[in-house]
């Protein structure tokens, strides 16, 4: 084998590895990603039963029901439509009514969303980015003000410089 042939072979081998990896990446991207949808999207276009969805919105007030075990149902709303969600397990510490939430899972045939993962905001000032973007796009959210329909929370002029 000449040096040139050797070099060609090794380059060929590398291309095979990289190509295989690229193939893996492409198949995985087409089969195992989850799409972000708002309740309105989900009500309008019902996805297939196996399509993974990230459902984002606010936990609707008064809809959280625990049946006494680890099974929980609640509704996710974007203030226009809302979708009922069921979940088995422990909800995140910051899961609260009226707060942003992302539920990941699939939409069942009975139009009830079956979540296997529930992510709530991580600290007081955090809202899931997708939820904010979605609400913003539809004029339900303003930068610096939060949810438009939601009233201010402070009592009077806060001590100087408060807020983050």
């Amino acid at each position: 084998m000449t040096r040139k042939a050797k070099r060609l072979y090794s380059i060929g081998a590398m291309l095979v590895v990289v190509g295989a990896a690229a193939g893996l990446v492409l198949t995985a991207l087409s089969s195992s990603v989850a799409y972000f949808q708002s309740p309105t999207d989900l009500v309008k276009n019902v996805p297939g039963p196996t399509q993974r969805i990230r459902l984002g919105g606010l936990v609707e007030e008064g809809t959280v029901k625990r049946d006494g075990s680890s099974h929980v149902t609640f509704s996710v709303t974007d203030t226009v439509d809302s979708v009922p969600v069921t979940y088995t397990g422990i909800l995140p510490d910051l899961f609260r009514e009226g707060q942003g939430v992302i539920a990941e899972g699939t939409l069942g045939p009975d139009r009830v969303f079956v979540a296997d993962t529930v992510l709530a905001k991580h600290d007081e000032t955090y809202m899931p980015k997708e939820v904010v973007d979605d609400l913003k796009a539809r004029g339900l959210w303003e930068d610096g003000k939060g949810l438009v329909k939601k009233p201010e929370e402070t009592v009077s002029a806060a001590p100087v410089g408060a807020g983050s």
Binding site: K149, K150, P151, E152, E153, T154, V155, S156
Partner: peptide, 8 residues
């Protein structure tokens, strides 16, 4: 009048 949802 300015902010109809000003709770205080």
């Amino acid at each position: 009048q300015i902010n109809p949802s000003y709770l205080p």
